[in-house]
Simulated assay, not measured.
Amino acid sequence: LAARELGWPVKALEAARKTLEAHGDRANAAHARYLELRRLLLIGRLDEAEGLLAELDPEPLPPALRAAHELLVAGIAMRRLETQRARSAITRAEAAARVAGIPALTAEIQSAALILETPAARLIAQGQARPLLLEEVEALLGSASLVVDACRYVVRGVGMSISLATRPVLFTLARALAEAWPADVPRGALIAQAFRLKLTDESHRARLRVEIGRLRLALKPLATVTATARGFALVSLVAPDVVVLARPVEEKHAAVFAFLADGESWSSSALALALGTSQRTVQRVLEELGASGKVQAFGRGRARRWMTPPVPGFATTLLLPVPFAGD
Rank of each mutant, 00 (worst) to 15 (best):
I90P: 00
Q110A: 14
P119V: 00
A104T: 12
D57G: 10
L52W: 12
A144V: 15
E108G: 14
L134K: 00
G51Q: 05
A107L: 14
V155W: 04
L141D: 03
G75A: 00
S145K: 10
V73L: 11
S145E: 14
A120R: 00
A77G: 01
P58F: 03
T83Q: 02
R87C: 02
E59L: 15
L72G: 11
L65P: 07
V147E: 05
P103D: 03
E50Q: 14
I109E: 03
P60T: 00
V158W: 11
R66H: 07
I115Y: 03
L114N: 11
R152L: 13
E135M: 03
Q126V: 13
V73T: 04
R152H: 14
L134S: 02
M78Q: 14
A49L: 11
I76P: 07
L133M: 15
A100F: 06
L133D: 13
L146R: 00
L116E: 07
V147N: 05
L61K: 06
L123V: 12
P62M: 01
E108Q: 13
C151F: 05
G101I: 12
L71I: 10
L134Q: 06
G127N: 00
S143R: 04
I115M: 09
A107V: 09
I76K: 05
I76L: 14
L61G: 05
A89P: 01
V155F: 09
P131F: 04
G101V: 10
L71T: 09
V147Y: 03
A95I: 09
A121P: 08
E55S: 14
R87I: 03
R92V: 08
I115F: 06
P63W: 12
L81R: 11
H69G: 09
L141Y: 13
L140H: 08
E59G: 11
A89C: 02
L105V: 07
L52C: 01
P62N: 06
A121K: 01
L141H: 08
A129I: 07
R87M: 08
A150C: 01
L114M: 11
A104D: 15
Q126Y: 13
A77L: 05
I115W: 07
Q128A: 15
E94G: 01
R98E: 15
G51A: 07
A96T: 00
Q84C: 05
L81Q: 09
L61Y: 02
V154R: 15
A96I: 02
R80A: 06
Q84H: 13
L61V: 05
R130T: 13
A120I: 03
R79C: 04
D57F: 09
L72M: 12
A67R: 14
L52N: 04
R156V: 10
E70H: 13
L146H: 03
Q110R: 15
V147P: 06
V158P: 14
R92G: 08
G75D: 02
A120N: 00
A49R: 00
A93K: 03
Q84P: 03
P58M: 02
R80Y: 06
L123Y: 12
R152C: 00
E55I: 01
G101M: 11
L53Y: 08
L71C: 14
L132W: 09
G157P: 02
A74K: 13
G157R: 07
A64R: 12
S143W: 10
P58A: 02
I102G: 04
V137Y: 09
